[in-house]
Amino acid sequence: MRSAPDDDRPGRVIPFGKGRDRAYDAYGHAYDADEARGDHGAERRVDHLTRFMDFLRRRVAGDYEVDEFGFDPELTDKVTLELMRPLYRTWFRVETLGAGDVPAESGALIVANHSGTLPLDALMLQVAMHDEVGRPLRLLGADLVYQLPVLNHLARKTGHTLACREDADRLLRKGEAVGVFPEGFKGVGKPFSERYRLQRFGRGGFVASAIRAGVPIVPCAIVGAEEIYPKIGDLPVLARILGLPYLPITPLFPWFGPLGLIPLPSKWMIEFGEPIRTDDYDPGAADDPMLVFNLTDHVREIMQQMLNELRLRRGHAFPPLF
């Protein structure tokens, strides 16, 4: 079943892993675990090297594909996710529940809580979607991300785009799994004392998008991100000068300089809830503000409840210490 990549095919995109039950090597090829253990070891190493050289050649020659949003699946799978995985597995020991509740193929809108001062929860949610659900997550991000150098194209290359109605509708119509954090900066930048309390949910634009596309809304609770950079203070004047939404003071930042940027190793859990169907509504219902507000509140209540239960289930933030 293994075959060497075909040099003649331009812009070859390696398929995504389909869940955790099959083993994949770093280059996206499924392999047989028994075979890898057998005496084919040397052969496998050579094969690995050949594949790596092919990968390198494609990258250097610019011979790979990105979609119209700038998503580069090959770079995401082989570089970005590889770099984030140690954080996911070892540092935060993320446990993901309810991955089976996320639709496997069709469009879906994943709505999650946002916290942690720096949006590491977005990165961990992306790893969870890739490794546990087996599909790429297409997040809708804040304007700020797309104005900043480096971050703007990294966000696009890893599959994300600007939070706006047109992009959300387009991704959902294409049957992608789109992720939103409706709390936005209010959520990610809230003080530590308000942890696990959902903030206001924007204007409910995400609900309207789901109704227009007729895709289910998957509520998602992320527990653990609140403790990575406990925000105990704020420097609003300096933040305004730097053009940032907030500049946090945490127990480690800015006192320890760059060391303060190391996230505390809290224990994380991510839970996907049961999808909320929107396909019984007429697409025109997206223009009914009352219905959109009600559905937004409904989603928010479910998520708050999921958060409370998941937090209890996780127990201490820094086991086994406290």
Partner: peptide, 24 residues
């Protein structure tokens, strides 16, 4: 494509074992 690709090709040629054309 120029120099960078040529370099990668040269290295690939070096590491590729004799008699193996990349397939099985």
């Amino acid at each position: 494509g120029g120099l960078p690709v040529a370099l990668v090709d040269a290295v690939a040629e070096l590491v590729r074992p004799r008699g193996d054309t990349g397939g099985e």
